[in-house]
Design a protein around this nucleic acid. Structure first.
Lengths: 245, 245
DNA sequence: CGCCGACTTGAGCAATCTCAATCATGGTGG
DNA sequence: CCACCATGATTGAGATTGCTCAAGTCGGCG
């Protein structure tokens, strides 16, 4: 179990000098949650910026009818940037602890004050935001263009420790949550794992053994072809009169 | 056909004083494209920030196998913020003109210089980025939790001019592109339109007539119940040992 | 030992895709 | 002015993917 990392190791805060870091963390607090606890709720007024120190935090969107859709999962050292709003508005997602979790809560007000004061900080926040955008775009691509099997393969590839071709690792959280992350049901996830067995992926509950990352990667790339080229090449679209309304 | 809007009307630039706006636009240029022209290509070095003056710009992700996935569509006055990278890196998406389009290309280098110089500008950029994040989150929610019919209804609702209950409007671009935006095939889109006829939505090619926005909105909300409550309420997930790897 | 939760597996069903045919529509050239 | 072609849109039929419901297994823990 890693100790709460020095705040310097949090990318978002790495650029702050001592004085600013001081000011930012003066009103901050470390909190612990148990699995399922709500950290903040969609619709509540934005009061704090959350940084995960230990464990995982999941972000959900809650529809009027009560449906919960998993948006993102954050781990060790990550800042929950999706929730950032600049005008003291309201959270547009809810955050819950996954397993026992420890987080740092920064005051949103202080956080926002610092942006104009420190260009480096503003830059770091922007960096975080653009990288999150890239992330979400990848997610959308995945959801729109890939099958459940593909998405699982991609997910597993992202978990393989770099460097080794044969490797093993633990799934970071339970399969129900992984399924939600991939946008499928747990039964479908189970079957997707079963299909990957043919490509050298074995699982024992949480533990995953990958015979060859290369093989898995090429399976990932060929699956869409192996199936029958489902990914639609977009046609040209015309909008002669592109005037809206 | 609206004239190219004064740059002051572009939200991203509204906060700049004359001197800074001058500096930013010194190296900028206005360019015209015809339908399908590539504005920038995924993988190319990031050289400019694009603002749409007239027409539409679509963003695509291109997979190694050649599949193109539509990520986003931008219209009049919007800045193509998804493409922003801070370290003079590479575009991670491609941009193409949809119909005849006129855009403003700002120098990315100048753009980045301005961020530390003007806190207000940094704030505006960040604002744009966080609002894009909200947007993409909505997209993901839609893709994960809603049926094709729902997504179309939601899309149409977003196009209805505010205030009126009975209304009509033109679709901003052709149905193939709309289908791609919703993550479905054009045939499926066609059938989705057919289903909405029962809820007072009629179409004549590009023109859409909505009998009652309220009715459409309630159809949108009830469809998931009317069907059979497909949206999975997420279960609690445990991750006792949440240590990654 | 027995329960509970997480995971797996099977069977049938629903949503969506694919392929193919048809039908408008608008522009073009004779 | 009209035949003709290209493009977009619609519709039908069958294949596929993923979902739902229902058992059944496995492993840990009181």
């Amino acid at each position: 179990m890693p100790e709460p990392p020095p705040l310097r190791e949090v990318p978002l805060l790495a650029c702050l000098d001592d004085a600013l870091l001081q000011r930012l963390t003066l009103e901050s607090k470390v909190e612990s949650y148990k699995s399922g606890d709500v950290i903040f709720r969609q619709g509540d007024r934005t009061t704090c910026i959350v940084i995960v120190l230990h464990g995982f935090v999941k972000l959900l969107r809650i529809a009027p009818c009560g449906d919960e859709t998993l948006i993102d999962v954050f781990g060790h050292g990550q800042s929950v940037i999706d929730a950032l709003t600049l005008n003291g508005e309201f959270y547009h997602v809810s955050a819950e602890a996954v397993g026992a979790t420890r987080i740092l809560k920064l005051s949103a007000a202080r956080f926002l004050q610092l942006i104009p004061e420190s260009p480096a900080f503003a830059f770091a926040v922007l960096q975080e935001a653009t990288s999150k955008i890239r992330n979400l775009i990848g997610e959308i691509e995945s959801l729109k263009a890939q099958s459940a099997d593909n998405r699982l393969a991609r997910f597993l590839l992202s978990l393989c420790p770099p460097g080794e071709d044969r490797c093993q690792f633990r799934l970071p959280y339970d399969k129900r949550l992984i399924a939600a992350r991939l946008g499928i049901q747990q039964e479908t996830l189970s079957r997707a794992f079963a299909k990957l067995r043919d490509f050298g992926v074995r699982t024992e509950t949480r533990q995953v053994f990958v015979e060859s990352v290369m093989r898995l990667a090429s399976a990932y790339n060929e699956m869409e072809i192996g199936g029958h080229l489902q990914g639609a090449r977009l046609q040209r679209s015309t909008a002669q009169d592109a005037a809206l309304q």
